[in-house]
Design a protein around this nucleic acid. Structure first.
Lengths: 190, 190
DNA sequence: TTTCGACCAATACCGTTTTTCGGTCGAAAG
DNA sequence: CTTTCGACCGAAAAACGGTATTGGTCGAAA
């Protein structure tokens, strides 16, 4: 019963990736899972519900990946670096896969934006914690943790932007590293 | 003859702001200038031409403002700060006025993007020059000027983003200043 | 508990007709 | 020679009406 839900989600994700959300019909999903359409509705209450579950899963895998990367690094600086690099790499892969979906994202952006919001909340918490660790261990010198973590988030968003609009010869890893160097060291000579 | 062009541009700008580019017809413009449509075509060869002129003017005023701000500041650091703050302030004002236009900007984004490209080129040149001045005067310590100026551009873009999507309690000036503090000093304790 | 066929209402789709709109042209006014 | 405009054009958008899809429900049966 739970593996049925599982299968539906996996199939649905495949179809969403291939055809996008709008072009994928409930019939398509049902047929590919070898079920009647109504049966699918026994497991999920709506198409959006399936989509939400797909996104929820991806997000969870993403966050797991990020947590692992943070855990593997040692110093607070390296942890932040690991976080940003992992994040950008993952998003880079995603931007290829989800290219079909990003074309549509304007339509149900309310939906995606909601999931996004949650992610940003997670993100700012992670960064804030890492900053606080760094301050406690005397690595960083920061007045207002909240402000600086928001600032880092903004910088990350800036890095993210080109991925989804104009990918021409844009190396997010290099850009991220440059950005991180400035964030840690600044540009002032002292 | 030249003041007629002038009037057309001013009226057109008003209408573009109020109704957006697409919803504003040449008839609308002509009527409000008290002319026949054909007469407007005597002064401008196309609707895009008028739009381009409107944008060209705004951009010029914008750049003048930025140059003044840079000129007024003394040290390279203050010049960069002045540049960013002026930029954000102007864009903040613009985002209110052009709210109609931003909704459409997806449609003729080729057009706007072209003007934008020019502006970004100007911007990166300005920043690169200010950085080089700062290095020459031994204020900054930077390896790769090109990379860092691009990085600063990205950071600025990150600041700009919230203006056009979710303006809720977002204070661009404060955010800009925080960002600038990090850019100049970094967060590492040393 | 699970599956499904039959059914519904909303909306997407489609071919056609009508309207709108950016743009041209030639005549005429000054 | 400059400026204005009415009449006109073609392409593209809107309006429209009828058909097909599609998300979602329900009750029966396995």
């Amino acid at each position: 019963m739970d593996d049925k839900k599982e299968r539906i989600i996996i199939i649905a994700e495949q179809l969403f990736m291939q055809y996008g959300f709008l072009k994928t019909t409930m019939e398509d999903i049902a047929k590919k899972v070898h079920m009647g359409k109504s049966s699918v509705y026994y497991y999920f209450k709506s198409k959006d519900d399936i989509f939400a579950e797909v996104i929820r899963r991806d997000t969870q895998i993403f966050q797991q990946k990020l947590n692992d990367a943070i855990y593997a690094a040692n110093t607070p600086e390296d942890k932040i670096r690991a976080y940003v690099i992992t994040r950008m790499t993952h998003l880079q892969d995603l931007s290829k896969f989800y290219s079909t979906l990003t074309d549509e994202y304007l339509d149900h952006y309310l939906f995606v934006e909601e999931v996004r919001k949650d992610f940003y909340e997670y993100e700012s918490t992670v960064i804030k914690n890492l900053l606080e660790d760094g301050i406690k261990q005397n690595f960083f010198d920061v007045d207002d943790v909240v402000t600086i973590s928001r600032m880092i988030s903004i910088a990350i968003k800036g890095l993210e932007f080109p991925l989804f609009v104009e990918a021409k010869d844009y190396d997010p890893i290099k850009e991220s590293n440059d950005m991180l160097n400035v964030i840690f060291n600044g540009i002032t000579n002292n």
